[in-house]
């Protein structure tokens, strides 16, 4: 299903902001974009971005995140198809190991899981 959450009924008049303003959308805009001016009160943007990471929001730019030594996106399946493939490969490997372990265990003690035993 396709979801279009704005009403085209709105005319040429400027509608102040989208009706559905989720926090992640706002944060990635107010933290990371625009012309940055050095303020007198130093709230380091990087600090704030790290906070948002604590909030589990992906808002920092790749560039800033790299500077902070953060590179989770390279292994996050949500962020690159290459990572998605390697995640699949890893899952496959883990499953193989698990199956092998199960088969081995089953051979040793004849069934492993004893809960269903008569």
């Amino acid at each position: 299903m396709t979801q279009l959450d704005f009403t085209p009924a709105g005319s040429a008049a400027y509608t102040p902001g989208p009706s559905t303003t989720n926090l992640a959308d706002i944060l990635e805009r107010v933290l990371d974009k625009g012309i940055v001016i050095a303020g007198d009160i130093k709230i380091d943007l990087l600090d704030i971005e790290l906070l948002t990471i604590r909030l589990r929001l992906f808002v920092s730019s790749v560039e800033t995140a790299k500077r902070a030594g953060i590179d989770w996106w390279e292994t996050d399946p949500a962020l690159s198809s290459r990572a998605a493939e390697s995640a699949l490969a890893q899952e496959n490997r883990e499953l193989r190991e698990r199956v092998a372990a199960l088969e081995e265990g089953a051979g040793d003690d004849d069934g492993g899981e004893t809960g269903e035993g008569s």
Binding site: L31, G34, I41
Partner: peptide, 26 residues
């Protein structure tokens, strides 16, 4: 963040604006 955004948006009703990042303080 919501306050900043709401205010930037309110200002934009009066013409184009260039938003500054959160916590630009002097």
């Amino acid at each position: 963040a919501r306050t900043h955004h709401r205010t930037v948006t309110a200002a934009a009703e009066h013409g184009p604006v260039v938003p500054l990042p959160l916590a630009t303080l002097f």
